[in-house]
Simulated scan of single mutants.
Amino acid sequence: MSAAVSQTLILAERDYMYGAGTLRLRVERVSTHRFIHDNDTWVMVEGAEIGWDGAPRDLRQVAVRASVLSR
């Protein structure tokens, strides 16, 4: 996984679980544990959601497609 702490991910709705719309997330922690769901590999990522104005919002923990983290 190449997502680094402090990196901001811009995640399409299809690339993270249980959200709506694009999610901007400043990474604080990436789990080393991977899991399979619907024939795809996912990783738990924790970080601060970044609002449209660039300001940090609430902390979120989301499952992200592992393939997104290696881009």
Rank of each mutant, 00 (worst) to 15 (best):
R29P: 00
N39Q: 15
T22V: 15
S6V: 05
R26H: 03
V68I: 14
G21W: 13
L11P: 07
R65P: 01
L23V: 03
S2M: 09
R14G: 03
R57P: 00
A66C: 13
L11I: 05
T41W: 11
E13D: 14
R24T: 08
I36E: 15
V62G: 07
A55R: 15
S31W: 02
L59W: 03
H33S: 09
Y18G: 09
G51P: 00
S70V: 05
Q7K: 13
V27G: 02
D38L: 11
E28S: 11
H37E: 15
V5D: 10
S2W: 06
A20D: 10
V5G: 04
E13P: 05
V62P: 01
E13I: 06
T41G: 10
E46R: 11
L69G: 02
T22M: 09
G54S: 08
V5E: 12
A3D: 05
G51R: 09
I50K: 05
E28M: 12
T8V: 15
Y18Q: 13
R24G: 01
R26E: 08
M44A: 12
R60D: 00
M44I: 03
V45P: 00
R60H: 02
I10A: 10
R57W: 00
G21I: 10
R29G: 06
G47D: 01
Q7G: 09
W52P: 10
S31I: 05
H33A: 10
R65G: 10
E46C: 01
V43Y: 05
V68P: 04
Q7D: 13
N39S: 12
S67M: 03
D53G: 01
A12W: 09
R71T: 12
S70I: 04
A20M: 07
L25H: 06
S70R: 13
V5P: 06
M17Q: 14
G47R: 02
M44S: 06
E46G: 05
P56W: 00
D53P: 01
W42A: 03
V30T: 12
D53Q: 09
V43K: 04
A55P: 00
